[in-house]
Design a protein around this nucleic acid. Structure first.
Lengths: 189, 189
DNA sequence: TAGATTGATGACAGCGACTGACATCGGATC
DNA sequence: GATCCGATGTCAGTCGCTGTCATCAATCTA
């Protein structure tokens, strides 16, 4: 048995999401989050750079997975399809049925606060440049790489919104494919 | 003669840009900005919502101009061309030769600080939705309106980067047209 | 013209996000 | 068994930002 309860970061993230949902982001203090997690405010800032980051901690693993799939895609695959394959793979690992309620709650919190929306935009921009870099390493040149990455982000957002939707019955990879097909049809017109 | 020196907001913005450039955004306190402008910290926050916003105050006028041009574009014009016309008009009014140094300095400050980059992303996202709304009012339906707006933002960013560039000799509207043409050629391939 | 009103600013107290420095102590290492 | 290490606690401090009330020149009003 360790000196402390395990998974301090996870407990902090869980407490934060719960409190942000209950009282709103701006009405929640970091001290309250830490207290619910059985820790101190100082420890919160050792695990997360700031009060917003606690909602985006999982993003780096997501990004790494997408980038690795794009990097390992067969050469025959078109850039946009390689990027979409990355999104599908991410969906299979991160956006699964059991996490839908969590994702919904998290997204509701983000949607209700401008500071959190700013951070989300920043994270998506970072993901876009990471995908663009991966495409360039595949030999795609600019500005095609950057544009393809931005389109991929648009597909990702669309698919995620649909996946979150109450009435949705499809899984994330399928929604990625549908969104991508619709986009292709649009640009073909 | 008034009770106070005129243009308090302008003086604050000027002092802020200078200090951010001299010492960096995070090493500059709002009290310092206010002092250089001959005002108090409290007054700063009456003119600007927060320490970042002082660099983005002009953005609303830019957005309004772009939206109005998009709204008044002839019906015969394709959505993307209407959006581009808005960007060109904005360039003629805001991105003129005399302001190039100012824009460069401002952009250098933003580029050197993540918080400011977040705010800029947020402003561009707001501009994108405003353009998309204007296009919808012209009868463009989704998702074409949203996608066209995002493409317009990409064109704007590209044109702005080139306009800022030391070696550039072209004016902003021309760079908008060039960037748009390159983008069209890309999607046509 | 005297008095009321307005609007931009100042003064001040206070909260909360975030940081630096140092102490603590169970577990791993040698 | 001594030593080191790493996660946490404690505490003081800075700074962004807000609420509240006072000030006072300009302007309006009776």
């Amino acid at each position: 048995m360790g000196r402390w309860e395990p998974d301090a970061g996870g407990r902090l993230a869980q407490a934060a999401l719960a409190l942000y949902g209950e009282n709103g982001f701006e009405n929640t203090t970091v001290a309250e989050i830490a207290e619910r997690a059985g820790l101190t405010e100082r420890t919160f800032f050792r695990h997360f750079a700031d009060k917003r980051e606690v909602l985006f901690a999982g993003g780096s693993a997501l990004q790494e997975l997408i980038v690795s799939v794009v990097a390992d895609a067969p050469d025959s695959q078109a850039p946009i399809d390689a990027a979409a394959a990355g999104l599908e793979a991410a969906g299979e690992q991160f956006f699964v049925q059991e996490r839908r309620d969590f994702s919904r709650q998290r997204q509701a919190v983000i949607a209700s606060n401008p500071e959190l929306q700013e951070r989300e935009l920043s994270k998506l921009a970072g993901l876009s440049t990471a995908i663009a870099d991966a495409l360039r390493r595949r030999g795609v040149d600019d500005p095609a790489a950057a544009l393809t990455a931005e389109v991929a982000i648009a597909v990702f957002r669309t698919a995620f919104e649909r996946w979150i939707d109450e009435t949705n019955r499809h899984d994330f990879p399928q929604l990625v494919r549908e969104s991508l097909d619709q986009l292709k049809a649009l640009t073909a017109a």
